[in-house]
Design a protein around this nucleic acid. Structure first.
Lengths: 352, 352
DNA sequence: CGTTGGCACTCCGATGACTGGAGTGCCAAC
DNA sequence: GTTGGCACTCCAGTCATCGGAGTGCCAACG
């Protein structure tokens, strides 16, 4: 892992160009590339023999390898790495794709839909799998709370936060309350807490509860108790990212082994590995590429992940990306992920 | 399809018993069953030659077939059909599984969780894929509506229906309203419509809108207009069933072809075919089995689907089931699906 | 010194022959 | 009706063969 990097300066101009050509070629048709093939595809007028010498050098540097003695060469992880870092020239996303993205994002009604659109667009345009993390809401501002009596000592709590998000949960109370009592409790809480951050609210509630309960009114105590439940931890684990186009991955020959495929899909359903990986990307800004084992997760062997964070007001709220075989068209995926992240950011921005 | 059925009466006692043994054997280890193997496994003391004669008869009747000349025999769809209809003896679900089901259903907080539990339990216990349709809500009773002002001429409408379900949507209004105006509108609507069926409400709203608008107050007109949007069609297509354990299907050798697997998974994401199939099962009561092509959907070739409807107060609300390879242990899956449907029914019942 | 043609070598993958095993179908005998 | 026997079929695995593709190395050339 910690082997020395291969700076471009170590490589002759020609070696770089040949590596670039080889990677592009291999990405195109998935066959190991031989010296003859490469000799033809390049503008440089070189004989296969010369090319072979260069390729041998590149192999010594760990940028290429041959599957076996008499096959062509394929890029190693380091080869891909050098390619995406220094050689690849991204080509801008087709205008039509940009338009599609814009259009779909405009149509989305709420965050949920926006995220779904984003992931299915990522997968649709790239023909691979698209993933979008649900936006983290670091500041959750309480707007309003309402209580509604259900039967059996249960109360429906409706909590409105952040302009337009509604959470509702059922809480249990010691005895049935009248509608008036519930309204009163809600009014008290709204007066006290509306407009404030939910984590503050929680802290304050805890403090209230620990204080001697005698010096507050019956109604107040009731309200606090209900609020305690209503504002409880709202982490929704297992619903942390949205994925689309997994089935696209079944089309790739490098994933034709059903066992491997199964592991991959299981890691998608468990969501854990991917979330870990994506969390790491929150810090980096701009597109990030993980090639093969660079991801650090065995199940993602032979796969690459291209990610970009999206943000509102400069604060990163989440990460989106594309998952596909290592042999993917990076120069097209990178701008796709980049643009999608930007558009998603601005779509989230525009809605206050 | 419309060939004559094979009533059990056409078959000798012995032929039936042999068919049963063969199917069981084949389900067990997936290898075509030969006459010798079958001769040993049965209590009947018969020579392989005799068995061969019977098997030839069964093949003539279209209940068995040989993959090739010198392999054993495997059941055809009709063979399976006869097996599940007349020969199979279901063995009751293990008590431990029943307990697990009970426990999980008790823990579930809301319908959504209940359905998720059900599908993942189905898949977990059967080691195949579990599917549960979201319960149809035929009577949607309006309980309460609230409006909350957002910026930019948008209003958040919170609609509480059926005791504990909350829908919220954003509606657009001609001009910004004060909180008081919104509360007034909500109060009016609640007074008029609370406790009534949502489809009635919709119809009435339409009538109100078409009536000459002069004879109602400004406030009333506003309320009606907002309600019209708030109570709009609430079909949530694409979210109609919950599935778990798809990856289990990748373990079966009959689905080892990636292409087929892909089609299958794509039909899961599109949800259409399965929904069609499940809709058909709403009418039948009790467990229903579709074997191979009986499903009528090509993608489900080599697969069987075992379903059962679940209901509340005698009204069928949905269907659940298990999807797996044709070669599945029907005598264990059938009771599993049966019991799960019953337990889900009663779980839904118990929560008013 | 870099570049090139030539040549021996390696390895894969497809093809075909062969073989053992499993199972059938049929027939004659009980 | 049941059974043993026997010829036959077919699959699946093994092995040898062979052409193609590509390499590595070397000697020659500018």
């Amino acid at each position: 892992m910690a082997e020395q990097q291969v700076p471009t300066t170590q490589l002759s101009e020609r070696a770089q160009q040949l590596l670039k050509l080889l990677v592009e070629r291999y990405i195109d048709d998935g066959q190991p590339v031989g010296s003859r093939t490469l000799a033809k595809g390049t503008g440089l007028d070189l004989s296969p023999a010369t090319i072979r010498n260069v390729m041998a050098d590149l192999e010594d540097l760990g940028l290429l390898r041959s599957p076996h003695t008499s096959a062509g060469r394929v890029p190693t992880v380091r080869g891909y790495r050098l390619f995406v870092d220094a050689l690849m020239q991204v080509r801008p996303l087709e205008e039509v794709a940009v338009q599609t993205l814009r259009r779909q994002f405009l149509q989305a009604q709420d965050t949920q839909m926006l995220v779904k659109s984003a992931s299915s667009l990522l997968s649709g345009i790239s023909h691979m799998a698209g993933v979008v993390m649900m936006p983290r809401r670091e500041s959750v501002t309480l707007r309003q709370v309402e209580f509604l009596a259900l039967s059996d000592r249960r109360v429906l709590a409706i909590v409105v936060v952040n302009e337009r998000e509604v959470q509702n949960r059922i809480i249990h109370v010691a005895r049935d309350h009248t509608a008036a009592e519930l309204t009163e409790a809600a009014n008290m809480l709204n007066a006290l807490f509306a407009g404030r951050d939910i984590s503050q609210v929680r802290a304050e509630l805890l403090a209230q509860l620990q204080r001697a309960q005698d010096d507050m009114s019956e109604a107040m105590r009731r309200a606090v108790e209900m609020a305690e439940q209503a504002f409880g931890d709202d982490a929704e684990p297992g619903d942390d990212f949205v994925m689309a186009g997994q089935t696209n991955l079944m089309g790739f020959s490098e994933l034709s082994d059903v066992g491997r495929l199964r592991q991959l899909f299981e890691s998608f359903t468990s969501k854990r590995d991917l979330l870990d990986l994506f969390d790491q990307c929150m810090r980096a800004d701009g597109v990030q590429i993980f090639i093969g084992q660079e991801t650090g997760y065995d199940v993602l062997d032979e796969c690459s992940v291209v990610t970009a964070p999206y943000s509102v007001d400069g604060r990163v709220l989440g990460v989106l990306g594309v998952i596909g075989p290592t042999r993917m068209a990076y120069e097209r995926v990178v701008p796709l992920v980049d643009v999608t992240a930007r558009l998603l950011s601005s779509a989230l921005n525009s809605r206050t």
